[in-house]
């Protein structure tokens, strides 16, 4: 059981998919303008990574090596379609707001990366835990970036006005795309200052 715990904890901080492995940046940054979208996106990615790792891991002994990429893509695409249809049915507004980025979970490198690196060689339960944990690690960074962008960009948190009371003027730059990159750079800066062994030479 200790092994499972380690599998679960590593991706959340020490081996975080975004800040350490630099995977899955593509679809993540554009959804961090406000917390609500980031939250839904994080949940979707957790569901997709967990479930597709589980399915691929169950199928791992029957997939021929030569066509494995396309089999993995089909499994992942199926999971994403399920999530997309679910959101369309129960949270239509958010689905519209996230637009193409839900579909882009298919090509999110975290999903494919974890399947290739972990699910193909491990038992279903461990793969499920690994997938979920990587989704969580991804979601955590998403929430951190979205928190600062929404707080300083619109002065709100989850849509509730927070900073307006103290006379804060919204900083329009925080809403714009480039700020997400700079904030993520700062998150990496902080993490690598704490964990010196991650620093690049």
């Amino acid at each position: 059981m200790a092994n499972l715990k380690e599998t679960f904890l590593t991706p959340i901080f020490k081996g975080n998919p975004i800040t350490v492995l630099v995977l899955g940046i593509c679809s993540s940054l554009a959804v961090t303008v406000e917390l609500k979208g980031a939250f839904v996106m994080a949940l979707s990615v957790i569901a997709v990574t967990g479930l597709s790792s589980l399915v691929v891991s169950i199928l791992r002994n029957t997939i021929p090596n030569r066509v494995r990429i396309i089999v993995q893509l089909v499994v992942v695409a199926m999971m994403v379609i399920l999530v997309d249809q679910f959101l369309k049915a129960f949270a239509y507004g958010i689905d519209k707001q996230l637009s193409v980025y839900i579909g882009l979970i298919i090509t999110n490198c975290i999903v494919m990366g974890r399947i290739e690196a972990f699910a193909l060689g491990n038992k279903p339960l461990a793969s499920l835990v690994d997938g979920l944990a990587n989704g969580l690690g991804y979601g955590m960074i998403l929430i951190i970036v979205a928190f600062f962008r929404e707080l300083f960009g619109s002065g709100t948190l989850f849509g509730f006005p927070v900073l307006k009371a103290i006379g804060y003027t919204n900083n329009g730059l925080m809403i714009l795309p480039p700020m997400a990159l700079i904030l993520l750079g700062c998150v990496i800066w902080v993490q690598r200052s704490i964990q010196k062994d991650l620093q690049e030479k």
């Binding site: 630099v22 990159l181 990496i188 800066w189 690598r192 620093q199 690049e200 030479k201």
Partner: peptide, 11 residues
């Protein structure tokens, strides 16, 4: 040092 590599690239 902590910004080297990927950090400074993001910025």
């Amino acid at each position: 040092a902590p910004l080297k590599g990927i950090g400074i690239t993001f910025i």
